[in-house]
């Protein structure tokens, strides 16, 4: 997995935090810095969800305009900057996908068959997500709940969409996912 940030670990994170803080104060050059440091990573997130190059580029514009508006809300003591930015990208891309409705975008089958995307240890360190137990916990799930939970996270699929794609009754899909979610919470802990 290639690393997005050109310098390692804490320094990259610190630089991003400082740039976001400057963006909150209205510094356009700082937004360009944020863009340079994160565009490839966020483009990956948008492409994965939109499954369409042109759409992902449109979504990316909206993402950085949101970053411009919301930078003042970023709190470095509560969130890692790259995770915060990726979450904005994910939510914006999912909104795009939902606005178009299921069926007009890439097949959800693709989502159910998404490759495992475990970031490198280096990428997690950069993100400050050292305790990212979620990857181990997701891997520990049975295949069906794992695929369905990942599809929900990355495609914004609802229960009924997932049931339709997997060609199982709604109750079966709910049962798989709910069991998986309880197992996930048990693995993650209550902390």
């Amino acid at each position: 997995m290639s690393s997005t940030l050109p310098i390692a670990g804490d320094r990259a994170r610190e630089r991003l935090v400082q740039a976001l803080s400057a963006v909150a104060g209205g510094d356009r050059k700082a937004l360009k810095t944020v863009y340079d440091l994160t565009a490839a990573k966020l483009m990956g997130v948008c492409l994965r969800i939109c499954q369409d190059r042109e759409a992902a580029e449109d979504v990316m514009q909206d993402v950085y305009l949101k970053v411009w508006d919301r930078a003042g809300r970023f709190d470095a003591s509560r969130a890692s900057p790259i995770t915060w930015l990726c979450t904005i990208a994910r939510n914006t891309a999912i909104d795009w996908r939902r606005a178009r409705g299921l069926g007009e975008t890439a097949p959800v089958e693709a989502a159910l068959a998404l490759p495992d995307g475990r970031p490198s240890a280096e990428a997690l360190l950069e993100a400050g997500e050292t305790q990212a137990r979620i990857f181990d916990c997701i891997e520990a799930l049975d295949e069906k709940p794992r695929a369905a939970i990942r599809a929900a996270f990355f495609q914004g699929c609802t229960y009924s969409e997932l049931a339709q794609v997997a060609a199982v009754p709604l109750g079966t899909m709910k049962s798989w996912i709910r069991r998986g979610l309880l197992q996930l919470r048990g693995c993650l802990g209550d902390g």
Binding site: M1, S2, T4, R28, L31, K32, Y35, A39, A40, K41, L42, M43, G44, V45, C46, L47, R48, A56, E57, M60, Q61, Y64, L65, W68, A79, I82, T83, C86, T87, A89, R90, D116, G117, R118, P119, A123, L124, A127, E129, A132, R133, I134, F135, I138, R150, F153, F154, L188
Partner: peptide, 27 residues
């Protein structure tokens, strides 16, 4: 909080050359 790191799991995407300019003009 717990699910957020999942979003880091993808690969990087290709960033087209003119994309920043398109963002800058919309600021």
């Amino acid at each position: 909080r717990d699910l957020a790191p999942l979003v880091l799991g993808g690969v990087d995407g290709p960033v087209p050359a003119g994309l920043w300019q398109r963002i800058a003009t919309r600021l």
